[in-house]
Design a binder for these strands. Structure first.
Length: 416
RNA sequence: CGGGGCAUAGUGUAACGGUAACAUCCACGAUUCGGGUUCGUGGGACUCUGGGUUCGAGUCCCAGUGCCCCGACCA
């Protein structure tokens, strides 16, 4: 893409109504735009990042047998009345609305009920199980207080997977498989090192629920990390009992701030029972299926990456989710030799399928450098009189700041 | 939902109760061309909304709305 055709502009200053670093940077760089408190539009560059994250998640969910669907945003209150989650006294962050005819509707804040009810017509025998269904879709939560930029919004994108099983053993096996899929997702988006499998409250069927917590000072949660075994315990469940359970003491744990990027938990028959998702087992007995649900905040993941990977000059995208691999910058006078050379390189990259953002704007070097740093593509390639004279290209790695001269073959080898 | 703060060009900030300024931005013309070059000319605001006080309100008072922060909450 040519930067001259990108309608978004960068800003020197962050808007005063944002404090969260992720929102400040993403707005300054033109990745997102704020509509309301906790409600953000994704602009072209931001949307590319979001879609890349979604695709990684999609691949990993598919790899553990998940089948993708898209449930509706508009939700039928009857389902939630059956599970006692419609009443505002019970669930206080519904967005509710009504039909012209007078009937009520809810805007989906989670889809256990909808998925379970939808599957009733598709499950009748133990042979139909296990079943694993997911979606990547908008959720709406009427948060009393939205905060932290795109990390806790009122409208956000979430991947939610639900699995249903004939017995507990099968549930446990699958639960571990999904855990592995989550670990691969975090690895691929560049957060593997910083993300801890964490024991937390909220378990319905099992004692604990499990969270994926990414270390960050911007996090709302306090967790206790055990480096050696690479897991953590959420402060909310930390007590003598759990320490004994893991055979550790407080000395083995380090207190950290973290962002809850994922949450998985076993539901048992909490939803299948009231909604009638039953099957007949080998002995002809009718039983409710046993379920689990697995959530992953897509835009929260993006916000977390912006938060933990950026530096004082701007965003730093891991290669797998960067909007473009290369930021090609032409210096000198528009139409000059360097520009012509850059045009050629742009064409070469495009033909090779290398994702490139070409800064073909007629601006000074300083401004282009500042923008490149702010936008955060993994590689910056400079074409200028200087590089022409040396017969190569200047390649700068955004994350390390390492700069070197390379020839065309080397350059392509690195960025392809 | 308790507590606190803020609201002025697209953005960031000024303005004693006396008739909105500066920077950035945008347009045009020069200049410059490896870290936001420099200069000139011009453009852009019913000062969040509604009331009130006053000869006069961006400024003081009341109410509302929006936004931010702390806490609570977060299936």
């Amino acid at each position: 893409m040519r930067q001259s055709q990108l309608f978004t502009k960068t800003r020197r200053e962050a808007p005063k109504d944002e404090v969260a670093e992720n929102a400040k940077l993403l707005i300054r760089a033109g990745f997102i735009s704020k509509e309301l408190a906790g409600v953000y539009t994704f602009l072209p560059l931001g949307l590319i990042v979001l879609e890349k994250i979604k695709n990684i998640i999609r691949e990993e969910m598919n790899a553990v047998g998940g089948l993708e669907v898209q449930m509706t945003t508009l939700q039928n209150p009857e389902l939630y009345e059956k599970t006692n989650r419609w009443d505002d006294e019970v669930v206080d962050n519904w967005f509710k609305t009504e039909l012209k005819s007078g009937g009520k509707l809810g805007l989906g804040l989670t889809h256990e009920e909808a998925i379970t009810a939808m599957l009733v017509g598709h499950v009748s025998s133990y042979k139909d199980l296990p079943m694993s269904v997911y979606q990547i879709q908008k959720k709406f939560r009427n948060e009393i207080r939205a905060k932290s930029g795109i990390m806790r919004g009122r409208e956000f994108t979430m991947k939610d997977l639900y699995s249903f099983h004939a017995n507990e053993e099968d549930l446990n096996d699958y639960y571990d498989k999904v855990k592995g899929a989550y670990e691969r997702v975090f690895e691929r988006v560049g957060l593997g090192e910083l993300t801890y499998f964490t024991f937390a409250s909220g378990g319905i069927f099992s004692k604990y629920s499990h969270e994926f917590q990414t270390l960050s000072e911007a996090g709302e949660d306090t967790i206790y990390v055990n480096e050696e075994k690479k897991f953590a315990i959420n402060k909310e469940v930390l007590d003598e009992e759990i320490l004994a359970e893991f055979g550790i003491g407080m000395d083995d744990l380090v207190e950290k701030k973290a962002i809850e990027t994922g949450n998985i938990f076993k539901l048992g028959t909490r939803y299948t029972e009231p909604l009638g998702l039953k099957f007949i087992d080998e002995n002809g007995e009718t039983k409710p299926a046993i379920g689990a649900s697995y959530g992953l905040g897509v835009d929260r993941l993006m916000g977390t990456i912006a938060e933990v990977m950026s530096d004082d000059r701007g965003l730093v995208w891991p290669r797998n989710i960067a909007p473009f691999t290369v930021h090609l910058v032409a210096l000198g006078t528009e139409g000059g030799e360097a520009y012509t050379e850059a045009e050629d390189l742009y064409r070469v990259f495009s033909e090779l399928g290398i994702e490139v953002l070409f800064d073909d704007r007629n601006l000074g070097a300083g401004e282009k450098f500042a923008d490149a740093d702010l936008l955060g593509m993994p590689y910056r390639v400079i074409v200028s009189d200087k590089t022409l004279a040396s017969g190569g290209f200047e390649l700068k790695e955004r994350q390390s700041g390492e700069v070197r001269m390379v020839n065309l073959e080397e350059l392509i080898e690195i960025v392809k």
